[in-house]
Structures are given as C-alpha cells and as structure tokens.
Design a protein around this nucleic acid. Structure first.
Lengths: 335, 335
DNA sequence: GACGTCTCTGTTAACGCTAACAAGAACTGG
DNA sequence: CCAGTTCTTGTTAGCGTTAACAGAGACGTC
C-alpha cells in the first residue's frame, strides 16, 4: 500500500518547467507568467498533486498546524472552545492538533507542549483554566508563539479570557435587581480561574450593594455536586436566590429544590453560567450568562497569528464580555 | 525569534558518535552498546534535543499523527468520541489532528481528508454519522489507512459503531417490560445512521412483542425539537411511554410534559440515549442507554493501527454494545 | 591461525520542498 | 543599438531524519 502520490518534480515535468516554478505557483509568488501559471495549475489538477506538508515544514521550520493543549474536552466549555478554535483555524488555513491532558499539572502540560513542538507546530494555544498550569507555562521555551485561554490573569503570558468577573457580577446584579436581599453562590473548584473570577464577581456585586456575602457553597462543575449543594440550600428558608458557576451545577440545584418542594422561580430564583444549548429546556428555563466562545477563539487565534507573523511576543491581553440571557428561572422574592 | 533547537548532529557531536547512532538510540534499535546508548541519552538530555517530526515524516512517508474528521463537535456524542479517541491515541504515541467540517457532505469531507493527507497523517478516523458522507468515503484514495466511526453499515469500509439497534431495542423492551402497551419514539434526523438504527431497534422490539408501532415523532437531537414533540405527546392521553433518540430530546420532552402537568414517570415513562453526565439530575433522573465511547475509540484506533502496521485494509467491522442505565424516569403505566 | 559470523558503528544517499543565487529574455531610455 | 533595469525561469544547496550499505572489531569454530 502507501503508493506515494506525485511530487513537485512530477508536476514540473508534466508542465515542462522546473520544480521551483511549481513551488512559486503554489506559494503565489508574483513573478510567474500567466501562461506558465495556468500550465502548472493544469498539471497539478491532472496528477492530483498534493503538496507535502512535512517537506515544507522541514525546510521552513514551521508547519501550518496549531497545537491546542486542553484538559477535559468533554466539559461543555472546553469542548465549545475547541470546536470554535478549530473552525477559526481552518478558515485561516491552519490545522489543529489536539493534545489533551488528563491533569493540568506541570508535567502533563510540558509533555503535551513537547509533543506539539516536536511536530514543529506554528503556535500553541493552551486552554489552561487551572492554577497548576501557570507555572508550567512560564518555563516553556520562549521562542514559540503561544496564547493562553482562560489562564492566570496575573502571569505575563498572552492571554484571552472570558470576563468571568463581569459575567458573575451581571448575574448577581440581575438577582439583586429582581429584589432579592442577597444571593447565594455555588462555585466551581477553587483551582480554576474561571471559578475564582466568578466568585469575585459575585462578591463584588454584593459588596457594591452593601450586602454581606453569605457562605460559599463549593462545587466541582458537575450536576452531582450542584445537587448536593442544592439539598442544603433547599433546607434553608432564608435562601431566595442562587447563582451557580455553571449550568450543570444549576441543573443539580434545580433538581434538589424540586425534590424539596421549593418552586423555582416562585420560592427561589436561580441563575447559571455557560448557556449550554439545552439550558432553555431546564425546568424552569434557566437564566444564565453566555460567554462568546467564538469571539474568544477568534481573538486568541488572531493573537497567535500576529505572533507567528511578526515574531513579537509580549504580554498581550484580551477580555471578552459575556452576556446575560434572561429566561424563566428568576422572579422577585416571595413576601 | 524561532531559534531552532539542536539537531541530531549536535547530539551526535556532543556524544562523540555519528548522527545515525543517535537515530538508532531514538528508535530503540537493538544493536547499540549500552554505554553508547547512555552517552547519547545524556547528550539528548543535556541539549534538550527534540526530534524533528517533520523530517522524520518526510523520510518515512508518515507522521505520528492521526487525522480525525468530525462534524459538530459540540454535540455530546461526537465530543465524547473525539476526547476518547484523543486519549487513546496519545497512549499509543500518536497525536490527533482534528479537521471538523460544517457539513458532512461529499465536498467538505473530501477537503478535510485532503488537508490531512497533505500532512501525511498515518491514518484517518472519520466520524461520519450521516448518509451524505458515505459516498465521499468510497471515492477516497485507497492507500490510506481509514476507519469510520458510526458510519454507513452497508458500505465496505472498516467500521466501528455503537450497536444502535440493540440499544434502542433494550430501551423499548425495558418500557414494555414495565407493562406499557406500546412505546412512542422521538427520533433524530433521518440522515444520521444513529437515528436510523435507533428507529429500527425500537420498531423491532415492538414488532417482536406483537405491537403495531405508533407514528414516529421526528426530532433533530436538540432539546428544542424534543420540546416540540413533547408538546404533542403531552396532549395525547393514550401515550404512556416514550423512547427518545438522545438525552437532550428527552430533556425537551420532560419539560413539555411538565408544563402540561403530565407527571414522569407516574403518567408517562421516558427513556433516553447517550447517558450524558447530567442525565442523572434531570427531573426525574433519566433512564437511558449508555454507549461506551472509550471502547469505540479503542476499537477504532486498534483497527487503524493494524492497517498502518500490516498494510492490510479489508472491510473490518466491529460493534460495541451499549448498556441500559435504569434511573427514575420509568414506572408501570397508571391504570 | 584462518575464516565465517555476529555486534556495533560510520558513510552516503535519498525524502520533497524552499531559499538563494544565477542567468537568459524582454524591455527601457538615451 | 547598447547599457541598465525588470521580469521570468532554472540550478544548486540545504532542512533533519531514516534506510541501505559498508567496514571494523570481537568471537567462535574447525
């Protein structure tokens, strides 16, 4: 098997030119006679010639591939990010190579990055929402274009991130505006920056309104942990409004509240985060915060391409504001 | 930027050997003196040498990369498949390059495959659950190791697939066993093989029980379409059991039934398909069918590696049986 | 001790492409 | 019509690796 396809020299022979001319046509070099260009194009088509990316990568030192390092691509957020990234990259003519890792610790990340580097990727996007990833990123080779998505805001690395704080603030404010005295929060894991940002935003909004934040309920993104927190919340009569760090936590909370006979939104209002596609069909439809994954993907790729082309690194930073999506899970408190 | 790292010759010089010896150490060639091997290893470590995958791919004709062609990687099924595939591939030392396509039509698929081929991937996995993909696959170059996941069972292409029919049969049977006279079905789009298989399984189970299948309710995988079908089902008093083609459809149905005051499972039982992680926290917890994505990924990769190594193609076929997960959304019919 | 057989290592030649230079053809201006 | 310029094409030399062959020792056998 593996009959190798035609090479550039085959095309050249058929078109009656040198292989270099074929190369020029392929790369859109200006100084090629129109007639020659057409002959070469025809030969390419006739032979079904396909340029060899490996050879090109070898000689230029970069391939048209972008490496993505991500963890847990079954979670909605990362999966959506990855898909958006891939889509955007394809439009720019880049392929995306995924190196997912089990844990976002120093070792795993370095290993994944190494793998990408050995394939001479043009650049790397790290979806590194976790504390332990930060350290790894600083020790990385300096000469590789790299962008972090949802990474550590305090590190001097090019970063594109959803404005977690603003999103959480909006969610909390939305509940306060509805008339609630305070808002409880079911958070994500503390080592995720997303979680921390959402906690901060929640706290800020409460403090700005002169409210002392109630105790935090720590979750782990899963509906299961949302359910556990929900069981506690359901038993506390003073709770009238809950903001959860993602929609799946919200689902678990809704389920627990339902079991305890607390009606949403009549007795308790709930707001989530992520706007998973099915959030509109929760019982009741979930008011939530929608991050713009496409915008994040576009921004990070743009940043990466700039680095690739200009060679300039620098600690760029870009923040994408999420939008509140109001549905049926929020109402004024019962009196 | 882009200071190129050390090459094999640099390692060779430092270790006082020829570059070929370095290559031998790297590829685990047996005939290398232990002492030499250690010296080379030390030199590699000291220089932080990383083999150049492009050069290797150029000379061997294949890279250690597997191309995956998929559509719609935000849907749970495909996303889970992709993640599992990536995980398994990494264990075998392969990177995964994703070429997602907007539509699974002939043109898009061919283009995606072409892109992969120009990078000289070692093999290609096509997650092609759609009718229109089949044609494209047959016209593909014959010399590339290729495996289809959830593709067309009637085409002579190596295929790994979840046993949709068996899963649907089990779901339907489960409802019949609970005492329901018949089972309604909300399906996925007709051009997905997954849908067709699930419809077949549902129909088979009913016919085997001597029941005339009720009209099919066509959906499109989304909770929104499940909701629409649910609104119709809720108004039909004779409906006591519904099997939906995936969990998100089920979510929409649950929501509609809830709105119409039909209790689940007391008035109507519902069974889904996919076992999304949050299915246990629907209201009520959803009884569903769990396909083993990891097993599918392992099987397809195994099949691909066999082709890569032995060069033998052939129309292999493997089917992975899914398992029913019983939760709270099924009960005997009310009388 | 001569000869074949291993084991280990080095040398050379690709792989398919782009970059750098070279050189011929065509055009300009005086 | 000749020198200077521009356009177009070809030639050559790598990029970093593996494959194929060759050669130098070490070892055993008769």
């Amino acid at each position: 098997m593996a009959v190798h396809g035609p090479a550039m020299t085959d095309v050249a022979r058929l078109a009656g030119v040198s292989h270099q001319t074929v190369s020029r046509v392929l790369n859109g070099h200006p100084n090629v006679r129109e007639q020659t260009r057409l002959r070469v194009r025809a030969a390419i088509a006739e032979l079904g010639y396909r340029p060899n990316g490996a050879a090109r990568a070898l000689v230029t030192g970069r391939s048209q591939v972008i490496g993505v390092v991500a963890q847990n691509t079954t979670l909605y957020g990362p999966a959506a990010m990855l898909a958006a990234l891939e889509q955007t990259a394809a439009e720019e003519g880049f392929a995306v190579s995924v190196g997912s890792v089990r844990n976002l610790d120093h070792r795993s990340i370095s290993a994944a990055v190494e793998r990408h580097l050995s394939h001479r990727v043009a650049g790397i996007v790290v979806i590194a929402p976790v504390e332990s990833a930060g350290e790894a990123l600083e020790r990385l080779p300096q000469d590789v274009p790299l962008v972090t998505v949802d990474g550590d805001p305090s590190r001097p690395v090019p970063l594109v991130t959803v404005d977690q704080v603003a999103g959480a603030r909006a969610a909390t404010q939305h509940l306060l505006d509805a008339g609630h005295r305070t808002v409880w929060h079911v958070s994500g894991p503390f080592d995720w920056f997303d979680s921390v940002g959402r906690i901060d935003g929640w706290r800020e909004a409460l403090l700005a309104a002169g409210v002392d934040p109630p105790p935090l309920m720590p979750g782990d993104w899963s509906a299961a942990s949302g359910y556990q927190c929900g069981q506690m919340l359901a038993r506390m009569p003073e709770v009238t409004a809950v903001f959860t760090a993602n929609d799946h936590l919200a689902l678990g909370v809704l389920r627990a509240l339902h079991e305890f006979g607390r009606r949403v939104p009549h007795d308790i209002s709930v707001v989530g985060f992520d706007d998973v596609p099915e959030a509109a069909y929760f019982i009741p439809p979930l008011t939530t915060v929608r991050p713009d994954f496409d915008a994040v993907a576009r921004a990070s790729l743009q940043m990466l391409l700039t680095q690739i082309e200009s060679g300039i690194g620098g600690a760029l930073r870009q923040t994408i504001a999420p939008a509140l999506v109001a549905r049926g899970s929020v109402a004024p408190p019962q009196r």
